[in-house]
Design a binder for these strands. Structure first.
Length: 456
RNA sequence: GCGCCCGUAGCUCAGUUGGAUAGAGCAUCGGAUUUCUAAUCCGAUGGUCGCAGGUUCGAGUCCUGCCGGGCGCGCCA
């Protein structure tokens, strides 16, 4: 059972009790006191015996990871438990308790108690200098400092604290990127994590509502000098934001509200629809490929998942988009199945070509027909497109390109017989065009984690 | 109140440093299968690029204002 169901159950149980408090926006937020306590407890700041609670938390975490890993496997995502850095949760805010010296040139100051319901004590925050703020392009009216709170009044650390620690972990490396840490507590933490990753580029793929958070985090990391490498260059920290998924009412679908669509269910539905379509063609005497039941399920699995991945990636990531089952699971038009179909058609030609002995690589490519020329020109654009996608981190450029490439191939396919070409030289030339197209499609789709099919 | 993002065809969206008659999918309508996979192809219909100014030889794209929508703003993540 996924962990969010435990959380939902606890939340509904607590509904209507005195744990419900009013948030600053006027709405009631249940459990805020309790969740604050839990946060402190997990960081060992709550005191008392919490063995039972810690055990419950451990179970919830395990259940969550199990569910995630299952989805990762199905999606071909390579992350596993070794990539989880839960220790960073313990990033200790006390590392900056010794005052501002550890974080120079950033000021660490106490923050005033903001809401009345906090426990006693004072939180602490990083204040970026005016220069650092200006450099980051953060303008705040009347220049009042923008604090990044890294320690709560009860001593617990927050999102910003762990993200700060995580940034250090990702930038630093014992030899490639040694970082001079002025606080022993931080050095200890880093050592325990193996000294850091020494990354050249760190990409934060996080929704756009958190833009402000990164606008504070990155300048802080740079100002602390953590990103500065021995050769004078800096680790690149990038927030690759993406828009929100909206419901039909145009309101944001929120993961934590629990009313969003579950990925698992989405994948099931996608695979079901792909299978239904496949069984339909199999029942048509003219179209049937002669797949076995097992093959049908395998193909449907690949097609369905490809459709979902592609539907998500082909949109400009910055814009919010309205969720629609039909769009997400479409099998016609600008979709993964269209690209997979183009690929399968090419592979089919190669299989038949191999049978008749006309297969072969290399040789001259002749571009006599307009369709041949259009296809060849598209193939030539491939490297340039890959570069721009990597640079701008916009997968939709790649989708747009691949759809265009596949479209040109389809036109070529309809107009230029390959194996039945007028002569052997033309056949060889067209076969080579087919092969180059297939390789571009496979590589491009592969970059988006989409597997190709030899037959579909 | 302050800040960020968005407004393009009936619907969902592209439009990558400003560049030629603004593109695609879906939907609608009409065609194509004795030929390598019809999950395909070809064609048609459909837009005052929210509104008003400005900069420019040239603006969907840049600037200003307005209207409409979304998101965020000191101890949630």
């Amino acid at each position: 059972m996924p962990a969010y169901r435990y959380v939902n159950a606890i939340e509904s149980a607590a509904n209507g009790t005195d744990v419900v408090v009013k948030s600053s926006s006027g709405s009631t937020t249940p459990l805020s006191e309790l969740s604050r306590y839990v946060a402190a407890m997990l960081q060992g700041k709550a005191g008392g015996d919490n063995t039972q609670e810690l055990e419950a938390w451990r179970r919830a975490k395990e259940a969550t990871l199990r569910e995630c890993n299952e989805l990762y496997r199905r999606l071909g995502v390579l992350l596993n438990d070794d990539d989880v850095r839960g220790e960073l949760l313990r990033a200790d805010a006390s590392a900056c308790n010794r005052g501002s010296s550890g974080f120079a040139p950033i000021q660490v100051r106490s923050v005033r108690r903001h809401h009345g319901h906090l426990s006693s004590g004072q939180g602490r925050a990083l204040y970026l200098s005016r220069k650092a703020r200006r450099h980051a392009g953060i303008q705040r009216a009347q220049g009042d400092p923008l604090p990044m709170i890294i320690q709560k009044s009860d001593g617990a650390s927050l999102y910003a604290t762990t993200d700060l620690a995580a940034a250090l972990f990702r930038c630093a490396h014992p030899t490639k990127h040694p970082v001079d840490l002025k606080t022993p507590a931080l050095a200890d933490m880093l050592a325990k994590l193996g000294g850091g990753l020494g990354a050249d580029r760190v990409i934060y793929h996080v929704g756009s509502p958190q833009k402000l958070h990164f606008d504070m985090l990155f300048p802080a990391v740079h100002a602390l000098g953590w990103s500065r490498k021995p050769d004078g260059t800096r680790t690149l920290l990038e927030h690759v934001s993406f828009g929100s998924v909206l419901g039909e009412d145009r309101k944001m679908l929120r993961t934590r509200s629990g009313d969003s669509v579950k990925l698992k269910e989405l994948l099931e539905e996608a695979v079901d629809r792909a299978e239904k379509q496949l069984r339909e063609t199999e029942s048509d005497a003219d179209k049937k490929r002669g797949f076995s039941d097992g093959e049908i399920r395998q193909v449907a699995e690949t097609v369905g998942i490809a459709a979902v991945k592609y539907a998500d990636l082909c949109q400009n990531r910055n814009t919010d988009y309205v969720f629609s089952w039909d769009k997400m699971l479409a099998l016609q038009g600008n979709t993964a199945p269209y690209l997979l179909y183009a690929y399968a058609r090419i592979r089919s030609i190669h299989r038949k070509g191999a049978e008749s002995g006309s297969a072969g690589q290399g040789g001259t490519i002749m571009l006599a027909e307009p369709a041949e020329r259009d296809l060849a020109l598209a193939i030539l654009k491939f490297p340039e497109v890959i570069d721009s996608v990597a640079d701008a981190l916009m997968p939709n450029y790649l989708c747009e390109y691949l759809y265009d490439l596949a479209g040109r191939f389809m036109t070529f396919y309809e107009n230029c017989p390959v194996l039945k070409a007028p002569d052997a030289a033309i056949a060889a030339s067209r076969l080579r065009l087919c092969d180059l197209t297939a390789r571009a499609l496979k590589l491009g789709l592969g970059l988006m984690g989409i597997r190709t099919l030899e037959r579909m």
